[in-house]
Design a binder for these strands. Structure first.
Lengths: 188, 188
DNA sequence: GTGCTACGATACAGACCTGTATCGTTCTCT
DNA sequence: AGAGAACGATACAGGTCTGTATCGTAGCAC
């Protein structure tokens, strides 16, 4: 009864890790297959093209993001506390060694063409976050919820990039405090 | 008396534009040479490796950044106004069609290894900006200048990434207002 | 004129990349 | 037991990338 991981999942996990850590263009399918310990043809049987693997990784990242978002904000009573809980969680995350920035910002940087499939998924994800922020800002009673949402959005992505640029010792140590300040200013 | 551009400069200008718009890995030396209208060997005579061209572009970008920073903040009387002037200028820039994000964030994303020459230059640049922000935050009379500086830093990079991700219609329209809020909160 | 240097154009070497083809094996289902 | 699907390994095709080598030419100093 050894725990066996299906080849498809193994490929996906390895590709996810390599894409996230090393970048999309820098990682080749040969490397993914080799590090997965599976054959190249098996990889291509499940993912007909590298782009499919990239898109699959991004869509899964989107899923994980929202699962985590729901988990993090579940116990917060108010919309204001939900936003804060998210930024506190993010602040913790970006100073952990498992953080290599944001998969969506990374893919948008490596593939700037907006019609690239990966960029599309990234755009949709970020747009969803924006909208969620707006909902919460509205619920929280912000005077200009759209403005607050976008300002928080900038903070979030700035924190992600700080992590990728600087590693663990990055300037995002006071992220949550900044979010708090912006929220407070938007309420009064 | 036709204005002649030296081949070296032509290569540099073309490479700069292509790197910034399309990314570092996506642009090959053949493309740079072809679009410059010069021979490949001429390119390699002036820049022995592609990485040299990348580093040259980044160092020049650093120079341009500080020249612009000085220009923008020159007429501001106080440190607080200098910071605000910078963020107002940045807000204008990131919504212009000539903005493709931040060359330094881009290179750090495409080459995550911190020992890569381009990543090194990017780190030094960002560190310099951080330090400059701290100086200004201190001069402005912030209670915790280091905290304010890093918070503003996150806003800046978030705005750059918003531009690269969304293009002209990005969430950085209220960047300066956010900077103002953070500064105000840090003074009182 | 005569070297000399910078240059453009082109071909090339070697590596790497994506994606395909082939073959033998192992596992599962019946 | 036997058929068929999934798999691992490997070789390969065609393209692209970085960097080098070669050749002919145009401008410039002396």
């Amino acid at each position: 009864m050894k725990k066996e991981i299906a080849p498809r999942d193994k490929v996906f996990q390895t590709a996810s890790r390599l894409f996230y850590q090393n970048g999309y263009r820098a990682v080749g399918v040969d490397t993914i297959a080799a590090k997965s310990g599976i054959g190249k043809m098996t990889l291509y049987r499940h993912y007909p093209a590298k782009d499919d693997l990239i898109v699959a990784y991004l869509k899964n990242s989107d899923q994980l993001f929202w699962n985590n978002f729901e988990l993090i904000t579940r116990d917060a009573a108010t919309a204001c506390e939900k936003l804060l809980a998210f930024f506190q969680s993010l602040q913790e995350y970006v100073k952990s060694p498992t953080c290599y920035g944001c998969p969506f910002l990374n893919v948008a940087t490596e593939y700037p063409e907006t019609d690239y499939p990966g960029h599309q998924v990234a755009l949709e994800h970020k747009q969803s976050v924006r909208i969620r922020f707006r909902q919460l800002a509205k619920e929280a009673g912000a005077k200009k919820p759209d403005v607050l949402a976008d300002q928080l959005f900038l903070l979030m992505d700035g924190a992600y990039m700080a992590s990728r640029m600087f590693g663990i010792k990055n300037p995002a140590a006071h992220l949550a405090e900044a979010a708090q300040t912006l929220i407070d200013a938007s309420l009064e």
